[in-house]
Design a protein around this nucleic acid. Sequence first.
DNA 1: ATATTAATGAAAAATTTTTTCAATAAGGCA
DNA 2: TGCCTTATTGAAAAAATTTTTCATTAATAT
Lengths: 143, 143
Amino acid sequence: MTDLLKIWGERLRSEGYRLTRARRAILEALAAGESHMTPEELHRQARRRHRSLGLVTVYRTLALLEKLNLVQRVHQGALSCHSFIAVRLPTGHHHHLVCRTCGRVEEFPDCALDDVLRRLQARTGFAIESHHVEVVGRCPECQ
Amino acid sequence: MTDLLKIWGERLRSEGYRLTRARRAILEALAAGESHMTPEELHRQARRRHRSLGLVTVYRTLALLEKLNLVQRVHQGALSCHSFIAVRLPTGHHHHLVCRTCGRVEEFPDCALDDVLRRLQARTGFAIESHHVEVVGRCPECQ
DNA sequence: ATATTAATGAAAAATTTTTTCAATAAGGCA
DNA sequence: TGCCTTATTGAAAAAATTTTTCATTAATAT
Ligand SMILES: [Mn+2]
Ligand SMILES: [Mn+2]
Ligand SMILES: [Zn+2]
Ligand SMILES: [Zn+2]
């Protein structure tokens, strides 16, 4: 977990971004979080490290981390549906299986779909550029 | 398609809701739509049938249809991430491969994903209830 | 037709996210 | 270390989205 922080910090630096107190606080909250957090929740957590942190900086930092593929956005429910979770899988790109009841998230790697997409590309002649996958269900505890 | 409308109308009536002009316009737009639409898009389409339709009624009707499981919410992207699509059960479920350039749509059957989802369900213990998949690329002509 | 009352649309309010901008502080360098 | 440059910050304002309120309308049962 401390690993994660170190890796993230180095990545930011290597991309030319500054490692500020605000960003450190947000990264630490994200790395410590067990599950996905809304910007609001993340702000609350990160403020324990950095009292004057503004919510707007949380939004900005999340946009940056999302661009760098260090966090991934999780959609859930109707209201306040955006939340964010640290990317821990080595493969980078992955998808989420979300529990409709408790919000628990299970990650699954993109490679599970590679084969389907490859066949689709071969059959149709399309050059596939991107895909969006959304899977919803109920976790073992909530069934 | 007309089937879908009839079924939806009967369902609303049987649940004690009134079948109003506004709701009919929205249902028709949803049934005619090939893919998911944001409330805004749906409003634009439905107004071709019912000029004075208010956006607020689109929101209210979507909430109702979602509650009755007649439409499904799809989350995508960062901004304006909510959109809605008719639930077409039990048959006719398929997905779309869309050409980014010319808009051409190629359909692919759901069964291509069945295997992936079955394995995911077995591995995680989740009871998978729904999924949405969208693939974007460039068609042979546009490459 | 009439009565009942669910549903509607406009406006206001609430919520969430982005933009603007002056002040601050991170990182490079002397 | 102390200065310089400028990326980053936080507050406030603005924008975008969604919900609530409420008087009016219209769908349905009688
Ligand atoms: Mn993927
Ligand atoms: Mn499907
Ligand atoms: Zn659950
Ligand atoms: Zn094309």
